[in-house]
C-alpha cells in the first residue's frame, strides 16, 4: 500500500487525465462540474424538493417516447394520421407501450408540475432572490399545458377533433388579436389538413424548444441562487428559538429597570415579562 504513488503512472490513467486536462483547458468543464454538482445546499433539504427534478425527468421521458412515436406517425388527415395511430397501437412492437407512456406521461407531468408549484408557493420560495425563477417556472407550466392541448389533436379521433375545435374557438374569441390567433392555429379559416400538420409542428418543434430554453434558465437560476431552505429546517428553528429567548431576556432586563419594579426571581420569567408590558 505504501509504494502506490511512486513511479510512472499507469498509461491509461495518464491518458485519461491528459484528455480531461485538454478538454478543461478549452471548456472549463472541471470548474463547471464543480459549480453544478459539488455546490453546497442547505442541510435540511426536503423530499418535497425533488419534484422539480422529477418534472424534468418526465419531460425527458416524453421527449424520448415522442421521438419514437414521430418515427411512425403520419400527420396526414387524408388517411394517414388516424391509421398510423392505429398501427402504432396495434402492430408496431411495443408501440402500445410507448404511446401509453407518452399519454400517461403527459398527465403525470401536469400533476408533478402543479405539485412542484404548490410546494414553492407554500414555502414562500418564490421570494427574494428567486422571483425570476418563479417567472420561468410559470412559463414552463403554461408551455406544458399547451403541450397537452396541441398533442391531444394528433390522435385525430372524434373526441380530440371536437375538443380542439372548441379550444381553438376559445382562443379566437379573444378581443382584437383573437381572430388572427385562430387563423394562425388553424392555418386558415377552417379546420383542415394544414391544421393537423401545424399542430404537429407546434407540438414537436416549437413548444419543446421553448420548454428546453426555460428549463435551461430555470436551472441556471437555481444553481446560481441555490435551492431554498425549508422554512422550518432545524437550523431555522434553532435561530428562531434563540431570537425568542433573547427577546424574553431583554424584556426581563427592562422590567428590572422600571421605577418601583419588583425584582421577581429568575424562576418567574413570565411574571417579569408581564410587568414589562
Amino acid at each position: 500500500m505504501t509504494t502506490k504513488d511512486i513511479g510512472p503512472k499507469n498509461a491509461v490513467q495518464k491518458g485519461a487525465e491528459g484528455t480531461i486536462d485538454y478538454v478543461d483547458e478549452r471548456t472549463g468543464v472541471k470548474t463547471g462540474t464543480r459549480w453544478f454538482l459539488f455546490r453546497n445546499i442547505p442541510a435540511g433539504t426536503s423530499w418535497f424538493q425533488t419534484l422539480g427534478f422529477t418534472a424534468m425527468v418526465v419531460f425527458g421521458m416524453q421527449a424520448i417516447t415522442g421521438i419514437i412515436l414521430a418515427m411512425y406517425y403520419v400527420p396526414d388527415t387524408r388517411g394517414g394520421a388516424y391509421e398510423s395511430i392505429q398501427r402504432i397501437t396495434e402492430e408496431v412492437t411495443w408501440g402500445w407501450l410507448v404511446r401509453g407512456m407518452h399519454k400517461w406521461g403527459a398527465s403525470v407531468m401536469i400533476i408533478i408540475v402543479f405539485l412542484h408549484m404548490a410546494r414553492v408557493f407554500i414555502w414562500g420560495a418564490y421570494k427574494y432572490p428567486r422571483e425570476l425563477t418563479w417567472v420561468t417556472g410559470a412559463m414552463l407550466l403554461l408551455l406544458t399545458m399547451f403541450m397537452g392541448l396541441t398533442g391531444y389533436l394528433l390522435v385525430w379521433d372524434q373526441k380530440a377533433y371536437w375538443a380542439t375545435v372548441v379550444a381553438v374557438n376559445i382562443f379566437a374569441s379573444a378581443p382584437i388579436v383573437g381572430p388572427y390567433i385562430g387563423d394562425i392555429l388553424r392555418a386558415g379559416p377552417e379546420f383542415g389538413p394544414s391544421t393537423l400538420s401545424r399542430f404537429y409542428s407546434i407540438h414537436m418543434l416549437v413548444i419543446p424548444a421553448g420548454i428546453a430554453t426555460f428549463i435551461g434558465l430555470h436551472l441556471y437560476f437555481i444553481v446560481r441562487l441555490g435551492i431554498s431552505e425549508p422554512p422550518w429546517s432545524k437550523r431555522r428553528l434553532r435561530i428562531e428559538r434563540d431570537e425568542e429567548d433573547a427577546r424574553r431576556k431583554a424584556a426581563r432586563e427592562r422590567a428590572k429597570e422600571l421605577p418601583g419594579a419588583v425584582n421577581y426571581p429568575a424562576t418567574w420569567p413570565a411574571k417579569a415579562e408581564e410587568a414589562a408590558r
Binding site: V58, M61, T77, Y82, I85, Q86, T89, E90, W96, L97, R99, G100, M101, K103, W104, G105, V108, V155, W156, D157, Q158, K159, A160, Y161
Partner: peptide
C-alpha cells in the same frame, strides 16, 4: 408508475374524425 399505468390502463384508438 408511468410505465405501470401504461401497461395496466392501455391506450385506445377512438372513432376516426
Amino acid at each position: 408508475s408511468i410505465i405501470v399505468l401504461a401497461i395496466v390502463v392501455k391506450v385506445e384508438v377512438g372513432e376516426p374524425v
